[in-house]
Design a protein around this nucleic acid. Structure first.
Lengths: 123, 123
DNA sequence: GAAAGTAGTTCCCTTTTGGAAACTACAATA
DNA sequence: TATTGTAGTTTCCAAAAGGGAACTACTTTC
């Protein structure tokens, strides 16, 4: 009867756990998935476009989340030389690899909600 | 030139956004994925087993996260009539549906880390 | 009788997150 | 010249999240 971790001590589990922490650290926060999802759907959006698209977000959080996403190379930011300067936010190649994950998450959420509702209906 | 949301106003996007919020609310926090992953891997673990398996977690957070997961029907809790009472935590059917999502997240994390390291190496 | 193992809870604290409102700054428009 | 639109930043605050340490309570083993 050993009293040490047995499951998560394996190198493969360590790697996966680390990978999950990595992923969570760049995807954490209330708005990241919504912003990324919006930019995957409609490509090249301005700051004010995103502010209108992402329901409920304010300028401070939008600005902060966009900076995070840019630092982590999931979106790109391009300042255009227009009068009122405009900024073009777009998904990067790296960011687009999140598409299956976002789909998976959305589909799981839909299925989960349905399963909970069924359970309650059958009670 | 309309100044209202165009992308996320569609019913399908609304549904997806809501689903993502649902999923995030039950999966939020630093430890949920680690606990769920551990319970998917090794089935039926006690409180102290989980405390040893989930690296870095303390009793307070473990207790709280397990309660959350149980309320949301992703894990089950069964008190056994043993001397020192023991408790068996296990993944539920509902919880097991997260398996593909956790895999996706872990694999994305691995690929993302590799892509960032490559980028920096090529600089 | 003391130690160790079971499974937690409670208290107190710091850090992180999120948000509202006001503000900057510049240019075109009415 | 006042308003509107661009893209943010700053300040101030409240709530949530996270964690260490001590504590409960019960039983078996040393």
């Amino acid at each position: 009867m050993r009293k040490k971790a047995q499951i998560n001590e394996t190198p493969i589990c360590q790697l996966r756990m680390q990978a999950i922490s990595d992923a969570m650290s760049v995807l954490s926060g209330k708005w990241k998935f919504h912003i990324l999802g919006t930019l995957i759907e409609g490509n090249k959006l301005g700051f004010m476009d995103l502010l209108r698209e992402v329901n409920g977000i304010g300028t401070k959080m939008l600005s902060k989340e966009l900076q995070d996403l840019e630092v982590n190379q999931l979106i790109s930011r391009k300042v255009l030389d227009t009068k009122p300067i405009t900024v073009e936010y777009a998904i990067t190649e790296n960011g687009r690899t999140l598409s299956p994950l976002i789909d998976e998450l959305a589909n799981w959420g839909i299925a989960y909600r349905a399963s909970i509702l069924n359970k309650n209906t059958n009670d």
